[in-house]
Structure formats: C-alpha cells, structure tokens
Simulated assay, not measured.
Amino acid sequence: MSSIRNIYCVGRNYVLHAKELNNEVPTSPFLFSKPTHALVEADGSHIELPADRGSVHFETELVIRIGRPYEKGITVDELVDGLAIGIDFTLRDVQNEMKKKSYPWLLAKGFPNSALVSKFIAFPGFEACKAKDFALVKNGVEAQLGNIKQMLFDLQTIVDFCALHFGLGEGDIIYTGTPEGVGPVNDGDHMSLHWDGQIVGECTVQLT
C-alpha cells in the first residue's frame, strides 16, 4: 500500500446510484480525491470509523491501479496493472450539509480509513472485466452487486479524463464508482468484498 500515490474517485458513475441519492446524472466524469491517510487494506482486521459525525455509508467500487506513466493514446489494458474491490466510506450527513452549502466534499470523503481496498490482483483486461461482477456482502447478506458494463463513463474515458485534468502516473489508483444499494454501517458489521464470486478482502467495522 505504501507505493500508492494519488487516490481518485469517480462520483455518480452508475445511473441508479445517482437516482437513489436524488442527484443529477452527470454528462461528463465527476471526480474527487481522497488523501493517502484515508487508505486502509481490507486484510481481515478491524477498521475504525468515526461514530460521532452522523451516518457512515458504504459505497462498493471496482478499483484500478495505474502501472506506468500515462501517455496520450495509451489504452486501459496498457496502462492498468492491477484491480481491487474497495469501499468509499462516506459521512452521509456531513456530505448532505456540504452539498447544501456548495462546499467541497473532503470532510465527508477524506477521513482516515475512508478508502478501504482489497488486495490487488492482476488486471485481466477491460473486456474480461465486463464479464465479471463485484459485490459487497455485509453480515452474510449481499448488499451491493455491480458490473462495469453499467457505468456511465467507461474505464478508458475515466483514465483519459484523469490524465487531462489532474495527471496520472504509476502508483495512482482510481475508485471507479458505486452501483445502487449504498447504505449505513453499524458497529461490528462484517464486510466482505467479492470479485467474480471470490472473496478478495474483508474487515469488521469498529465505530469509535
């Protein structure tokens, strides 16, 4: 995890998720970032999340890792070397207040341990990814199920947009958006992250 540099996140990249939160569906990629202090590995241990700032929501996402410097015209298959499943933990009450005031989301998105990520596996290629689902199972019950075929903006569009507006290089990771089904976590919740039916990461939430 120490080799990870920038953490980019794509918001509202699944239509049904945008609608479930009563958000407008974007017409171009909508991105924000998290500090590296937010990053934590889903290695089976407890992770601490704040208990005193309102509701904490899970947002399960496919995460890609950039393996080389971006060059104009490069394809996703040439650029990406790893894939993981992650959770963009969000302070939902805080975010709603930020949105009302037209403030940035950093307070709601950038707190420690808010960027949970499984182990990375070799990127199988863009087309192969579309044949596999990712999921979150919470306390033994499937809470979210997604497939990148449902994305508004595909992986190529996302990496090109990131590179143009922010820069993109080796060690950067991108949370590519969450499908519908987001919801609150409670103290003691067990979360397991699945890729193609296999568990690739898990943790237990500890609200403190």
Rank of each mutant, 00 (worst) to 15 (best):
V56L: 06
L62S: 13
C129N: 06
E127P: 02
D196A: 05
S3E: 14
F111E: 00
G171M: 12
F134K: 08
P112E: 00
W195V: 13
E59D: 15
L79F: 04
L207H: 06
N113W: 05
N139D: 12
G44I: 02
H190D: 11
P69L: 02
E202G: 10
N13V: 02
L155H: 07
V10K: 08
F134A: 15
A108G: 09
Y14F: 13
A84P: 07
H194T: 03
D43G: 11
N139I: 00
G181E: 10
V63S: 03
L107G: 08
F30D: 15
I174M: 04
E24P: 00
Q198L: 14
L107P: 04
Q156V: 11
L155K: 01
Q150M: 13
I47H: 07
M151E: 13
K34T: 13
L39C: 14
P29I: 03
I64E: 01
E41L: 13
T204M: 07
E61H: 09
T176K: 02
Q150V: 08
D189W: 13
S3P: 03
V137T: 10
G140L: 10
T178I: 02
V25Y: 09
G146E: 01
L152P: 00
I121H: 04
Q95K: 02
K138M: 10
V185D: 04
G171W: 07
C203W: 00
F120R: 00
L155S: 06
V182R: 12
V25P: 10
T204A: 05
L136E: 05
I85E: 01
T176C: 09
Y8E: 01
E48S: 11
T27M: 05
K99C: 06
F166R: 13
V76Y: 13
S102N: 12
G125A: 04
C162S: 07
S102Y: 09
Y70R: 11
D189L: 14
E180S: 14
I74S: 13
Q144I: 11
W195M: 12
A18L: 07
Q144K: 01
Q144A: 07
E142K: 11
T27K: 15
G73K: 04
L207R: 08
G140T: 02
L193T: 01
